[in-house]
Design a protein around this nucleic acid. Structure first.
Length: 425
RNA sequence: GGAGAGGUGCCGGAGUGGUCGAACGGGCUCGCCUGGAAAGCGGGUGUACCCCAAAAGGGUACCGAGGGUUCGAAUCCCUCUCUCUCCGCCA
C-alpha cells in the first residue's frame, strides 16, 4: 500500500508515476485525497464529542464520591446523549475509513525512475543477454515433454490421474534432478549469507494481505474454505510475513532469508502452448530469496540479488537474458522488477525462470514492518525485496532441451555432486 | 474432537466498574556520585490518528481481536482467536 502522506504531499508526482505503470483511472488519487479529508474532519469532530463526554463522565464520578447523587443523576442524560452521538459518529467514521482503505488498496506501487513506460511484455527492456543460443540439429530437437516421457522422468498422465492437468509427477532421475536443484540452490543461498527457513505452505488472510497477494491475486490462489487458508503461490508470502508487525533495530538489517517450498497457482485463463509440458503448471518447486533492508541500501541490494541469480544461471550453463519490466508488466506491488529468462532450444522460446523485485515500502506499509534508525531514533518502513533463485520446472525444461544429445540428457556439471549421475538416458 | 485455565507495556507481574496509559520489580536510558566502575540516589522510558506552518502544547483511541451493557470498562456480558494442561485420535 502506498503511504498516504506521499499522496497528500505530492499528488501530481503520484499520478505521474502511476501513469508509467499504465494505471487507470488517475482520478482515484483525487478521490483518495477527498475521502481522506473527510475522514480527518470526522475524526476531529468525533474526538471533540468524546472529549466532552469524558469530561462529564469524570464529573459524575466525582459527584458520586462526594455523595452528590442527585446532581450526578441529572448529568447522566447529558452524558448519555453525547456518548450516543459519539457512537453514531464512530460508525460513520468506520465507514469512511473502510472506503479510504478500499481505495488505497487498489493503488499499485509507484515504479522506480528507471522503469520504462509500457503496456505489456513487448515493452520490457532487455538489459543483458548472455550465452550462445544453442543450435540443435537433426533429430535431437525434441521439446522437453517428449524427452521427459521418452526417458520416463516426468509423467503428465499420472499427474492427471492423481490430481489434474498441470500437476506433473517426477519419476526416478527426474525426481532426483528436482531434489538436486533444490539442494544446490539452497546451498548457494546459504553460502551467500541467507538464513534458511522451512515455512508453512498454507497461509492465513493477514499474511496474504501483507505481501499484496490479497486481495489483488485472490483468484490466483487455491483457497481452503473450511479454514480460510490459502496455499502459497510463492515462499515470498510466508518468508516476508515472518517479520510482519515488527519493529527492528537498524543493526538487525539487512535480514536475508531463503526457503524452498512448493508453489501453487491456479493459473486461471492460461491455455495453448504456454502451458505445454513444464511451461506453466499448477504446482512447482522454487527456492526463494528475500531481503529486508533500509531505503538507502535497497537498490544496491536489488543488484546483489540479481547478481546472485545470474551466478546460478551461469553455473548451470544456460543461455539467459535479463529484462527490466516495463510499468505495465511489472506486478502490482513492485517498484522495480528484473525478470530472468532462459532460452529453451527446442521450443525456441524464452522462459521466465526468475523474477527479482524491490517493493520498497509497499509491503511493509501493509505489514507495519519498521525499523528504528540509528542516527535519530526515528521509525521508518523497511524495504523488502525478493527473487526466485530459482524456479525449478522451466530450468529443468531448459536443461532437458538444451543438453539433449544422442546419448541422452547431460546433467550440468554443478548438479552432478547432488544427482550422483551425469546423464539421463 | 471433548474438558478446563489463561492472554495486561521491552520482560516479569499487580489491577474485578471512576482519580488506570495502567501499581510494583527488572531492563534500557539520562543526570548526580566516582580517578574509573559497581552500588546508591534522582529523572525519563509505548503506539497510532487528529488539531497546530513547525516546535511547544492539546485531543482521541489502544490492556489478544471484534461487538455489547454502562454516564463511565483492562475490569461485567457475548462471539472469535491464540497459548497452556488433561482426555481422545493419530504421522
Amino acid at each position: 500500500m502506498l503511504e498516504l502522506q506521499l499522496l497528500r504531499r505530492d499528488p501530481d508526482f503520484v499520478k505521474k508515476k502511476l501513469a508509467v505503470k499504465n494505471f487507470q483511472p488517475l482520478s482515484l488519487v483525487d478521490e483518495v485525497l477527498s475521502v481522506d479529508e473527510r475522514r480527518r474532519k470526522m475524526q476531529g469532530e468525533m474526538d471533540e464529542v468524546l472529549n466532552k463526554s469524558n469530561i462529564i463522565s469524570k464529573e459524575i464520578g466525582g459527584l458520586y464520591r462526594n455523595g452528590q447523587r442527585d446532581e450526578a443523576e441529572r448529568k447522566k442524560s447529558e452524558a448519555s446523549a453525547l456518548s450516543d452521538q459519539a457512537h453514531e459518529m464512530k460508525k460513520e467514521l468506520q465507514k469512511v475509513e473502510k472506503e479510504l482503505f478500499d481505495l488505497m488498496v487498489h493503488l499499485p506501487n509507484l515504479p522506480h525512475d528507471c522503469v520504462p513506460p509500457g503496456k505489456d511484455e513487448h515493452d520490457n527492456e532487455v538489459v543483458k543477454e548472455v550465452g550462445e543460443l544453442p543450435e540443435l540439429n537433426g533429430e535431437y530437437v525434441k521439446p522437453h515433454w517428449e524427452l521427459a516421457e521418452m526417458f520416463n522422468i516426468i509423467s503428465w498422465e499420472l499427474g492427471v490421474k492423481i490430481t489434474g492437468a498441470g500437476f506433473p509427477v517426477y519419476i526416478g532421475k527426474g525426481a532426483r534432478m528436482q531434489r538436486a536443484m533444490i539442494q544446490y540452490f539452497l546451498d548457494e543461498a546459504v553460502k551467500a549469507g541467507y538464513m534458511e527457513y522451512q515455512v508453512p505452505h498454507l497461509i492465513n488472510e493477514d499474511s496474504g494481505f501483507g505481501t499484496g497477494s490479497l486481495p489483488d491475486k485472490e483468484g490466483q490462489m487455491y483457497h481452503c474454505r473450511d479454514d480460510n487458508f490459502y496455499l502459497i503461490p510463492t515462499a515470498e508470502v510466508p518468508l516476508t510475513n515472518l517479520y510482519r508487525g515488527d519493529m527492528l533495530k537498524e543493526d538487525e538489517l539487512p535480514i536475508k532469508l531463503v526457503g524452498y517450498t512448493p508453489c501453487f497457482r491456479r493459473e486461471a485463463g492460461s491455455y495453448g502452448k504456454e502451458v505445454r509440458g513444464l511451461n506453466r503448471v499448477h504446482q512447482f518447486d522454487k527456492v526463494e530469496i528475500v531481503q529486508f533492508t533500509t531505503p538507502e541500501l535497497s537498490y544496491k541490494t536489488l543488484d546483489a540479488m540479481v547478481a546472485h541469480v545470474e551466478g546460478l544461471l551461469k553455473n548451470l550453463g544456460l543461455p539467459y537474458r535479463i529484462l527490466r519490466l516495463c510499468g505495465g508488466d511489472a506486478t502490482f506491488a513492485s517498484a522495480l522488477t528484473y525478470d530472468f529468462e532462459t532460452y529453451s532450444a527446442a521450443q525456441k522460446l524464452w522462459l521466465e525462470v526468475s523474477s527479482v523485485s524491490n517493493f520498497e515500502t509497499f509491503q511493509t506499509n501493509r505489514m507495519k514492518l519498521r525499523y528504528k534508525a540509528k542516527e535519530d531514533g526515528k521509525k521508518h518502513l523497511v524495504h523488502t525485496l525478493n527473487g526466485s533463485a530459482l524456479a525449478l520446472p522451466r530450468i529443468l525444461a531448459t536443461i532437458i532441451e538444451n543438453y539433449q544429445t544422442p546419448e541422452g540428457i547431460v546433467v550440468p556439471e554443478v548438479l552432478r555432486p547432488y544427482t550422483g549421475f551425469d546423464i539421463i538416458n
